[in-house]
């Protein structure tokens, strides 16, 4: 679709503004992480040379040498890490040193499997609840109680019963993504316009055809909304879940780099989590546009 000249100008303006904001943020970060000037605080004027030497040595031992920083990486350091990591994303040097691509693939795999399982559960159940007030009332208390539980609260139970950290992670993703999809599917199915259902009735459409050709497309935008919310939550939860269970995945990567005190890698991972989350949301937003209809 061709942009009008005005729209193009607006896009250009907002893009330039975004770049300016980024530049200001990076500059502030850079200034904040500049090495502090040689401190005068250690060499106080009491004149005890031996004591002074000892504290210098102590300072060196503690890694507080001549170049004094507070340890927070500068933008340049993080930039170097980003380039280094992204230039070789799929290296594998043992359990504690894998490239970001491999870690990301593990996380996305868990999210994908858990999400699809949740979808396969939520869609039929949502249809049932949406089409039958009886089932809706019967399921409602369970949904209301189970929905607000933090998915991580299930983790001990999952680890105990499943006895596999990776599958436990998948279970946690399943349990957190099932609710928005279930509730939205039920709502979408229940809100299908009565006249469309009446058309199907007067045409003596079989239940299966009605479900797939009338109710599903009619409820699809609402269902996709639920899926979009679910994938967002799943991506939030997977990081925390992998921090807990360890082994592989982007969450484990963050935790591992924290244990290495490599804040540059932690910052890099945070950035990657954000980028992938945005891409996931973007993908579901375009899916949503595909099934949305204008009445």
């Amino acid at each position: 679709m061709p942009f009008s000249r005005n729209k193009l100008r607006d896009l250009l303006a907002s893009g330039l503004l975004s770049l300016a904001i980024l530049a200001v943020l990076l500059m502030a970060w850079h200034v904040a992480t500049l090495p502090a000037p040689e401190p005068a605080s250690v060499a106080t004027g009491s004149g005890n040379v031996a004591g002074n030497n000892a504290s210098d040595e102590y300072a060196r031992l503690m890694g507080q040498g001549a170049k004094k920083t507070d340890g927070f990486p500068s933008p340049a350091q993080v930039g170097q890490t980003i380039v280094a990591q992204l230039s070789d994303p799929f290296y594998d040097r043992g359990p504690n040193d894998k490239g970001i691509g491999i870690q990301m693939a593990h996380s996305l795999g868990r999210v994908g499997i858990g999400f699809v399982l949740a979808l396969l559960t939520a869609l039929p159940l949502g249809f049932l609840i949406g089409m039958s007030p009886l089932w809706q009332r019967a399921f409602n208390p369970f949904i209301q109680i189970l929905k607000p539980i933090s998915p991580l609260a299930w983790m001990p139970l999952a680890l105990y019963t499943i006895k596999d950290s990776s599958i436990s992670g998948i279970f946690v993703i399943f349990i957190c993504s099932v609710w928005p999809m279930l509730i939205n599917t039920a709502y979408g199915v229940g809100a299908v316009r009565r006249e469309w259902l009446n058309v199907a009735r007067t045409l003596e459409v079989s239940p299966l055809r009605k479900a797939f050709l009338v109710i599903l497309p009619a409820a699809a935008p609402t269902i996709l909304t639920g899926m979009r919310i679910s994938i967002g939550i799943a991506w939030l939860v997977i990081v925390a879940a992998e921090m807990l269970v360890g082994g592989t995945g982007i969450g484990y990567f963050v935790w591992n780099e924290w244990n290495n005190l490599s804040l540059t890698s932690v910052l890099f991972a945070i950035l990657m989590i954000g980028v992938v989350g945005m891409l996931l949301d973007f993908a579901f937003a375009s899916l949503q546009r595909m099934v949305t209809y204008v009445e």
């Binding site: 316009r193 006249e195 469309w196 009446n198 058309v199 009735r201 007067t202 045409l203 003596e204 050709l213 009338v214 497309p217 009619a218 699809a220 099934v291 209809y293 204008v294 009445e295």
Partner: peptide, 28 residues
């Protein structure tokens, strides 16, 4: 009960908005 022996034209036209004109009629 409803039957294909009786065709209904609804007050609010009741077309399926995600189907084209041909698909709406084709569905019937």
């Amino acid at each position: 009960g409803p039957s294909l022996d009786r065709g209904v034209v609804f007050q609010g036209h009741a077309l399926m908005p995600w189907m084209s004109v041909a698909d709406n009629i084709g569905f019937a």
